[in-house]
């Protein structure tokens, strides 16, 4: 190339200096959009994370006969573990169950003389959606309407609850994904439109350049570089704003209030990186593409 990067860089800086207002408008738009995206990414993650952790608590409770022996417990444990789609089986003895219940409701259990609770197995499926299949394997072994083992008294019956939970989880996940897609589309359109407006203000300049015999790329490079500079500046401003917000608002809340810190969300460093790449990429590509219609002279 006959022209150095330095030349194009000087050209774009000159353009920004002399067209401060449109450049500032583009900068502000990209900054605000990036801040919204930067807030939205962790929120989407937290929501889907919360939904998934709720779904992760889905399990089948297997209650043994009141008089079940240790040998029977061990046998049932083995049988449960061999079932397909079972990830983990946790045993809770009647004594542990009693202690647990007593903690939750001391008064009610003080009235009881003995322990009315059976030994319990908590069976966790490999995936939340497999829970109904696992339940069927235990409560309706071989489709005969019989328990997997005669020592099992009953199996928790939360079919309706489980179905509803799974539906809600799926709904939350899909909604979040849809919102994210909409937000990204809106950001791209908004940024593209702002860039187009600032180019429109300079279409005469482009026309003159073409008449003097400038090639399309000779005209385009300064605009693309300008897009990169504006995008990067906007990303930096958005990142600083978000970082300040995190330290000042979110961190104190998170230490007092478990809910915020509970679901795993994107770290601040990867988030910065995503915003920087998005800001620079969208602005640069946006300027390059928007310029096309003004180059047709």
């Amino acid at each position: 190339m006959k022209h150095s990067l330095g030349f194009f860089l000087r050209e774009s800086l000159r353009a920004m200096r002399r067209n401060a207002a449109p450049s500032f408008a583009a900068l502000a738009t990209v900054t605000v959009t990036l801040i919204v995206v930067g807030v939205f990414i962790p929120i989407v993650q937290a929501t889907t994370g919360a939904a998934n952790s709720a779904a992760g608590k889905v399990m089948v409770d297997v209650y043994m006969q009141r008089h079940a022996t240790h040998a029977e417990d061990a046998r049932v444990m083995g049988e449960l573990r061999r079932l397909p789609h079972v990830q983990r089986v946790v045993f809770e003895s009647k004594a542990q169950a009693l202690a647990q219940q007593r903690k939750q409701d001391p008064l009610a259990y003080e009235l009881l003389s003995g322990n009315p609770l059976p030994d319990t197995f908590h069976v966790y499926p490999t995936a939340p959606s497999a829970v109904l299949a696992v339940r069927a394997e235990i409560a309706d072994a071989g489709g005969q309407g019989q328990m997997l083992d005669p020592a099992i008294a009953s199996v928790s019956n939360h079919t309706q609850d489980t179905k509803r939970l799974l539906t809600v989880t799926r709904f939350v996940t899909i909604t979040a994904a849809l919102l994210a897609a909409l937000l990204i589309a809106a950001s791209v359109l908004l940024i593209g439109n702002t860039i187009r407006l600032s180019l429109y203000a300079r279409r005469r300049e482009v026309e003159v350049m073409k008449l003097v015999g400038a090639t399309d790329w000779f005209i385009r490079w300064p605009f693309v570089i300008e897009g990169v500079v504006v995008g990067a500046a906007a990303a930096v401003m958005a990142i600083v704003t978000l970082a300040v917000a995190k330290v000042v608002v979110l961190d104190p809340l998170a230490s007092n209030w478990g809910l915020i810190s509970a679901p795993r969300t994107i770290g601040i460093v990867p988030l910065m990186f995503v915003l920087l790449v998005a800001g620079v990429g969208v602005s640069a590509v946006g300027s390059g593409l928007s310029l096309r219609r003004f180059l047709r002279v």
């Binding site: 350049m209 073409k210 015999g213 399309d216």
Partner: peptide
């Protein structure tokens, strides 16, 4: 076309100067 135009000087009624330069 750009290379062709470099062989032709053009002057317009409204000057068509670049206002930022």
């Amino acid at each position: 076309v750009p290379f062709y135009r470099r062989n032709i000087g053009v002057v317009f009624q409204d000057f068509k100067l670049l206002p930022n330069r």
